[in-house]
Design a protein around this nucleic acid. Structure first.
Length: 540
DNA sequence: CGTGTTTGACCCGCGC
DNA sequence: GCGCGGGTCAAACACG
């Protein structure tokens, strides 16, 4: 803004001339321009392909939707779905009164039939003693549950059901690598991936998967959209800071626990450890965190990211050998080995997502809506959101917000609505955000051009990252779910992307801000490989 | 009065 | 078997 306003006229005109292409360029510049134009063309082409893909999947979704609503026993088709659809009584709210819920689950205990028993402490104890938990209860589940009460009260669809194949569900089960059960050994293993899994299975019994998130946070705890009740506090050995124990109180029987502790070496770092799987739908505001944690677990599961985890990762299985994981998203993690890692503490497989690493893809994981900030939220910041922002220059991921509607109090979560990127978010504190407020007085044409170019570049990068992800189709499905729900909800909650870009063209005026957090989180299925491969090829 | 927090006691798994 | 440490319970307390 400064540079364009206060540049000498001659220099400015020269720059403008260069931008407009009227100046005499040497061959290099010419080639650069040509290559840039070619890339722009590729991006546009990619946009069209994505758009077609999206519409195709949307059709698929709608047809499935019709099938499910027409089915007499809709729940039978979603036997792998978590128990959210049966939890109506837990909330005392009928489906039709509930806001749409997206349930991201991570961990085990996904057997809805034995849910109550599973959460019973004694039962858990028995399970741990038996050491022969069944696959259904001991497996690590990663699922997305979409509930749209306006369509049907029983259309709780696991995202993978969109894959239109039972094989997918089977594959998803087999993806579990951290189950301790011996039963898995009995399973027929016919492909190489399962052979890899076998190596994992030989490790000693492991407990529930934990996801540890390290983030810089001043408030006592990060706000992740769920409602927690503190039930204990301990001084852990080796750390002068007390460790607080929380349990999820969104549902009375929810087994999810959370531990919060300050890093002994850096008090500004808050270490939050999640354990267990929510047995209830999560508000969208909570799915952000669930996405992040699931993403970590998913990525750890699908490839070797660090050398710190010889027992939990798959030897010999690298991103290149996976082939399909060579996205920018993966690159982001691979370039920051400390960003995500897996370890095993007290037989708990633990995924650590370090959001304090500078210049990472998630360099500033801002939980602006910390519990302490809710009560003091002003009108200018009544929208709670978390932000996976990144440095535009160094990151492979664009800055995108995963926003939700405002939450009324610190002790209650409200129904979250997916609110795509809005500029007013940037007016607050994040000055390094690559998207600038267009209402800035210093804007001029050149800056707008640069902004647009930057946005397009970012969109291209995002598109590439998205398209090259094997979970692309699932993400699209999730996005569609979000889209469908929001469409029926209130279009006024949706705002358009600030500038033209791939995402915008992919879904008319709606940007899919869901992508950044849900990308790696939604699926462990390998069946998206073909889609991802196609997309990657298209991206080039 | 309902809800959430604090804190000492207790339980249990693990290592020696 | 014993001690240690992590995790949980539950009564007392605080707060709106």
């Amino acid at each position: 803004m400064m540079n364009s306003c206060f540049l000498p006229t001659s220099k400015r005109s020269k720059m403008e001339a260069e931008l407009s292409g009227s100046s005499i360029c040497n061959n290099d510049q010419d080639q650069l321009l040509k290559s840039a134009k070619a890339k722009m063309g590729e991006v546009k082409e990619e946009n069209q392909k994505l758009k077609r893909l999206l519409s195709q999947i949307l059709k698929e979704y709608q047809s499935l939707e019709k099938q499910i609503t027409s089915m007499g026993q809709p729940k039978q088709s979603t036997t792998e779905t978590n128990s959210s659809s049966n939890n109506e009584d837990d909330y005392g709210v009928k489906d039709q009164d509930q806001p749409e819920m997206v349930s991201l689950t991570l961990g085990s205990w996904n057997n809805p039939c034995n849910k109550k028993q599973n959460y019973d402490k004694k039962q858990e104890s028995d399970d741990s003693l038996n050491k022969t938990r069944k696959v259904e209860t001991g497996g690590l589940e990663l699922g997305l549950d979409y509930r749209n009460p306006r369509v049907s009260t029983t259309d709780s669809i696991k995202y993978s059901s969109l894959e239109n194949s039972n094989k997918v569900l089977k594959e998803d089960e087999n993806v579990d690598t951290w189950t301790s059960t011996q039963d898995l050994k009995v399973k027929e293993n016919t492909n190489s991936r399962e052979v890899d899994d076998q190596e994992i299975l030989h490790q000693p019994q492991v407990k529930k998967t934990r996801v540890c998130i390290r983030s810089r946070c001043d408030s006592p705890t990060i706000h992740d959209g769920c409602h927690w009740r503190k039930y204990g506090q301990k001084i852990a050995k080796g750390n002068p800071c007390p460790r607080a124990y929380y349990r999820c109180t969104v549902s009375p029987n929810c087994p999810v626990r959370k531990q919060v502790q300050r890093c002994p070496h850096d008090m500004s770092i808050l270490i939050t450890t999640y354990e267990g799987t929510h047995n209830h739908p999560l508000p969208l505001s909570a799915t952000a965190m669930a996405s992040a944690t699931s993403a970590a677990a998913s990525m750890i599961k699908s490839s070797t990211l660090t050398s710190q985890t010889p027992t939990l990762t798959r030897p010999g299985l690298t991103t290149s050998s996976l082939g399909l994981h060579s996205s920018n998203f993966m690159t982001t993690f691979n370039n920051n080995p400390s960003l995500i890692s897996a370890s095993c503490h007290n037989s708990h497989p633990t995924v650590t997502l370090d959001l304090t690493v500078p210049n990472s893809g998630f360099s500033s994981f801002d939980w602006l809506s910390s519990s302490s900030s809710y009560s003091s939220a002003t009108s200018s910041r009544n929208s709670s959101f978390l932000n996976f922002s990144s440095s535009a220059a160094s990151s492979s991921l664009p800055s995108l917000d995963f926003s939700t509607s405002s939450l009324p109090t610190s002790s209650s979560w409200a129904s979250g609505y997916l609110l795509p990127y809005t500029n007013h978010h940037n007016n607050n504190t994040r000055t390094n955000n690559i998207y600038q407020n267009p209402s800035n007085n210093n804007n001029n044409v050149q800056q707008q051009q640069q902004q647009q170019s930057l946005n397009e570049t970012i969109a291209a990068v995002a598109t590439k990252a998205i398209a090259s992800n094997p979970n692309f189709q699932s993400v699209l499905a999730a996005a569609i779910s979000s889209y469908v729900g929001n469409k029926a909800n209130n279009d006024q909650k949706m705002t358009s992307f600030p500038s033209s870009g791939a995402l915008q063209s992919a879904e008319s005026s709606r940007s899919l801000a869901l992508f950044p957090t849900s990308l790696p989180a939604l699926s462990t299925s390998k069946n998206n490989a073909s889609v991802a491969a196609d997309a990657r090829d298209n991206v080039g």
